[in-house]
Design a protein around this nucleic acid. Structure first.
Lengths: 340, 340
DNA sequence: TATTGGCACTGGGCTCTGATGAGTGCTAAT
DNA sequence: ATTAGCACTCATCAGAGCCCAGTGCCAATA
């Protein structure tokens, strides 16, 4: 084992011990807790180097070392492959998730499960609109000049929007709207639907133009210009333990979770199902999450990305375990949501 | 002013001061902070009586007094009428909420607003199914033996469920299902729909019976036997300040919020729109909320209750302010959700 | 009879102190 | 390159002592 290898082993041991104990770890402790067959003095030298290179720091003189973000980063990057869960665990996950009665329920089960297994905060994103196909559009009258549009995607997500029409709408017109929308949009992904929507007004009978334009505008807004992406959260209580001693940090994290924008951005950055992304400490754009780590993964059916999910915890977290769980849950959520 | 009146005034002053300062309040502080035209000795006598009667306690000898749950209860009960918000505030609330683009959006705006105005955790319930009318039912084919049912209520809530059918379903049958369901259920409240569903199988053509039975079973489960009530939460960060010094309590509260069952029970207990309910400390069934207060109100259009909303905070909260805000937001949410 | 001034007493919280010990860096020997 | 040894650093903890907000009680007062 080269000196370099040993130094990395030391880093790994520091991470392991610090994660387990929350205490800065010293050279002495390290030697007898792990079976490093060298003396504490050697470890001290290695630690000095690791500190020089920015992988660990001392909270104060005469204290042990704790890993820096850079240290965790190296640790994670060298975790070549994520060890899979046992087949029993996997079956339990799939079993539990597949009992979900509708999309909402499946997602709720997923976040809960993820939060429980990782003992951290979990987030699941609803299948994103821009990656879905429109399965069906329904037009309902809810007043003389009010229509309700209901869009159902192939991922099982349902969006609804109210349209105020410039003129009264009768049942015949609603029928014409249904078939018009059905032909031009249903079965199409939103990219294609965008083009179809633009042509919609032309395709309409002259008398219907005003209403069709209003409808197209609302649909365009809801599906393309401002699609609302949604998240579901669970396990917020788990995080209170991690930051019990730093109320300000705790508050920041809770606020960031409440705000959702950072989480949504993170999700938007995912581009492939079942691939893990880990964002550590200062790497997070949001200062409120500067001492947290986000482990995220896309879920989807086969190659097709549908949405994302993530776990949020302190930088001092069990990386291997969390990563394995996130990947496993992402896989099954994708399978189950994709299957409907 | 009778001695009894003064004692209540003392209690009110203690509540006010304790809420403001988080510190036990003593007789001396009380006299010069509020203009009670008696001496501190008199106050001390009054305090002794109040303590005897269980309205206040001393955390330890030689400390000031803090209100007990019973003290807060008396305080709240004697707040005869809730002072309304200013017209400016009210307009701002209505304006902000009415910009919501769909039900989801309106509710999200409501919780956020409620959390922001009260600086506490806010909860809003989706319009409850059992109090809604079915506006429309849509039947979609998503495979030879899979149907998707989409139920849209008059409150704008959309529920979907997948049905596995025992035999293949063709387009004609789907058409028949649509009209069958449309006639028997649409426009009915769930109580009536329950009866209609029972008769559904009889009304169907013999060849369709199997499928109709399966569909009716799923609908019955989704709408009547196990209607899923849903909540939306916001402002969790706000409570971290309140319990920063008691991590265990904080965790308990976060867990209770995550769990939702207690909140849902609370909501289920509401029976009238715009009426405030206050549940203080130990009055809460959930031990995790034993040092929290829940201020809840139903929202609805006119006399018709649609759902509930609430604010969760420490028993030491600004009762008058919180109550006024909750009532105001409930009123506008009811109006706006009812209007679609 | 209710209120008040006076007084002794209580006990939590703050500051200061010294002892403890985990952990370090450096140096000289292996 | 590794190691044993050593002097040094500093957070943490327990104890001592003081402070003082606040109390209960009592006798005097209106």
């Amino acid at each position: 084992m080269s000196a370099d290898d040993r130094r990395f082993a030391v880093l790994r041991a520091i991470v392991a011990d610090y994660v387990a104990t929350k205490e800065p770890v010293g050279s002495k402790t390290l030697v007898d807790r792990h079976s490093l067959s060298v003396s504490s003095a050697t470890i001290r030298n290695d630690m000095a180097v690791l500190e020089q290179e920015g992988y660990i720091v001392q909270p104060h003189t005469s204290a042990g070392r704790i890993p820096t973000d850079k240290g965790y980063r190296l640790f994670v990057d060298r975790l070549s492959q994520v060890k899979p869960l046992s087949s029993g665990e996997r079956r339990a996950i799939e079993q539990f998730l597949s009992e979900g009665v509708d999309l909402e329920d499946v997602l709720r089960r997923s976040v809960r499960l993820l939060a429980q297994l990782t003992r951290q905060v979990a987030v699941v994103q609803y299948p994103v609109l821009s990656r879905s196909m429109v399965r069906h559009i329904e037009v309902l009258s809810i007043g003389d000049r009010r229509l309700m549009l209901v869009v159902i995607t192939d991922a099982g997500r349902v969006e609804q929007r109210v349209v105020e029409t410039p003129v009264d709408v009768d049942n015949d017109l609603i029928g014409r709207l249904r078939s018009l929308l059905g032909e031009s949009i249903a079965g199409r992904s939103s990219g294609v639907a965008a083009i179809a929507l633009a042509d919609l007004t032309d395709a309409a009978a002259p008398a219907d133009k005003e209403v069709v334009t209003a409808v197209a505008a609302v649909l365009r807004d809801a599906l393309i210009d401002h699609p609302e992406e949604r998240l579901m959260l669970s396990g917020t209580g788990n995080i209170s333990g991690a930051w019990a001693d730093q109320p300000a940090t705790l508050r920041g994290v809770l606020d960031a979770l409440d705000e959702q924008v950072t989480l949504l951005k993170l999700m938007a950055a995912l581009d492939e199902p079942d691939v893990l992304h880990v964002s550590i400490g200062e790497e997070n754009a949001d200062v409120n999450l500067a001492s947290s780590t986000l482990v995220s993964a896309g879920y989807g059916a086969g190659e097709v990305l549908m949405g994302g999910l993530a776990v949020v915890g302190p930088t001092r977290m069990d990386y291997p375990g969390t990563m394995a769980t996130v990947r496993a849950v992402a896989k099954y959520v994708g399978e189950i949501v994709g299957r409907r």
